[in-house]
Amino acid sequence: MAILRDRKTYREKIMRALYEAAEGDRLLGIDGAKLRNDLGIPEQDMAAACTYLAGEGWVVVDWARGNTPAMITLTHQGIRRMEAEEEGRG
Rank of each mutant, 00 (worst) to 15 (best):
M1K: 11
A33N: 06
E56T: 02
R11S: 10
V59S: 09
C50I: 04
R26L: 10
G40C: 11
L4K: 08
R5S: 13
L39P: 08
R26H: 11
A47W: 01
N37M: 11
L4P: 00
C50H: 03
R7G: 00
A49C: 04
G40I: 07
C50R: 00
W58C: 01
A54L: 00
D38L: 10
D62W: 01
G32V: 11
D62T: 15
A48Q: 10
D62H: 14
Y19G: 01
E12L: 13
L27Y: 10
M15E: 09
G32C: 05
D62V: 15
A33Q: 14
A2M: 11
A21C: 01
G57N: 02
G32Q: 07
V61N: 00
G55I: 09
L39A: 09
A47S: 14
E23C: 06
W58E: 07
E56W: 04
G40M: 11
K34E: 15
V61W: 01
L35V: 09
W58T: 00
E43L: 05
V60I: 11
G57L: 06
Y10W: 10
R16M: 13
L35N: 05
L27V: 05
Y52V: 09
D25G: 10
V61D: 03
P42M: 10
I30P: 00
R11H: 10
K8R: 12
I30L: 15
D6F: 04
Y10Q: 02
K34V: 15
R16S: 08
A49V: 05
M46C: 03
L28W: 04
L27P: 00
D6K: 10
A2R: 09
P42S: 07
R16E: 15
A48S: 11
G32M: 07
Y10N: 12
G40P: 09
V60N: 14
A17I: 01
D31K: 13
L18T: 09
I3N: 08
L53F: 04
A49L: 04
A47M: 03
V60H: 12
N37H: 11
A17F: 12
R7P: 03
A48I: 03
A49R: 01
L39Y: 10
M46G: 12
V59Y: 05
A2D: 05
L4T: 08
E23Y: 04
E56R: 13
I41N: 06
